[in-house]
């Protein structure tokens, strides 16, 4: 199946796909950025393994 000239339908579909792709890309970047900020604000507290081992 081939179309020599892009039908208007394909232009609109391309616009939709491109827009959705950009939105998803931005969403991933935002969640990544949010994760970095949250982790830097509240550093993960690792359990003090040395004390635990000493106690055992």
């Amino acid at each position: 199946m081939s179309f020599r000239e892009p039908h208007d339908l394909h232009k609109r579909r391309w616009s939709r796909n491109l827009g959705l792709g950009l939105v998803l890309g931005i969403f991933v970047a935002l969640v990544f950025g949010l994760t970095l900020v949250k982790v830097s604000q509240n550093p993960i507290q690792l359990p003090n393994t040395a004390t635990q081992e000493g106690g055992n």
């Binding site: 039908h7 208007d8 609109r12 579909r13 939709r16 491109l18 827009g19 959705l20």
Partner: peptide
């Protein structure tokens, strides 16, 4: 197309 295939906008 007639049933309305929307653009992203």
């Amino acid at each position: 197309t007639d049933s309305g295939d929307a653009q992203f906008g």
